[in-house]
Amino acid sequence: MNLAEAKHAFITGGASGIGLGIADAMVARGIAVTVVDVDQAALDAVQAGRPSERFRTQQLDVRDRAGWARAKAEAETAFGPVDILVNNAGIGPDGSDLADVTLEAFDRIIGINLVGVFNGVTSFAADLRARGRGHIVNTSSVAGLFANAPGVNAYAAAKFGVTAMSETLRAELEPHGVGVSVLCPGYVDTNIIANTARISGETNDYDGGGVPGTPMSTAEVAAIVLHAIEQDEPYTITHPEAWPAVEARMNAIKSAFEAAERRNHESV
């Protein structure tokens, strides 16, 4: 969508990292922003020094469906209908092998990184469709495109789900004038690992091993996201270095289709 026509953006996980980068970039473009985050202290810190007429904060755990309804109502009372939803809140990989991941850690990753995104979609997508305008950005990951980096198992499962959800939603909303982009960041300079440890109450073994590329600043990611909204990009990539891993996966899947083709010919 044309960002000059956007009046209100709602950004989850917006008190730090990629979410805050997007919030700041949107405020700079004249868009009012509601930033929600599970971390009240971080929200208080980012509110200070930012213009309250264009930047407001609200605590939300994206797993809390009643909380979504409340946050939406308060946000729209303050700044009007939401044109742009950025489902960005997420925690990092667990770092353990899947056989060693605890049930609680698995459920937490699915609850926040996958169901949390669905909760945002069900809170806002029908309104955007009814108004015939708007854009949704879902933050997936390069791990939403390939899953064999070490320690990303449950995280990749959630992020593959976000990628799939975004693709389907894009097809569903396109005829109604609403765009959907899935953001698949690689290595970005954020505090996701520390935040994950704080939210989960567990130390985290994840060391980012296997993530291709060099760290990108959140401001640079934000510029990429704003461009993606303006151009209605289906997939938004920060690190094209990820492609060889995706391509290797594609080739392995293609081989399975070719093997099936040979098998089906033989059985005829």
Binding site: D97, L98, A99, I110, L114, F118, A143, F146, A147, N148, P150, V152, N153, A154, A156, A157, A158, K159, F160, G161, V162, T163, A164, M165, E167, T168, L169, A171, E172, R249, I253
Partner: peptide, 30 residues
């Protein structure tokens, strides 16, 4: 679990993409 083009399969695809990812990660790990 590999593509998302069939209408009405959205939630199912989300889960099945997840299964695909879990399987690929688990294969590498095991």
């Amino acid at each position: 679990g590999l593509m998302t083009t069939v209408p009405g399969v959205g939630a199912y695809s989300v889960a099945k993409f997840g299964v695909t990812a879990l399987s690929e990660a688990l294969r590498t790990e095991l």
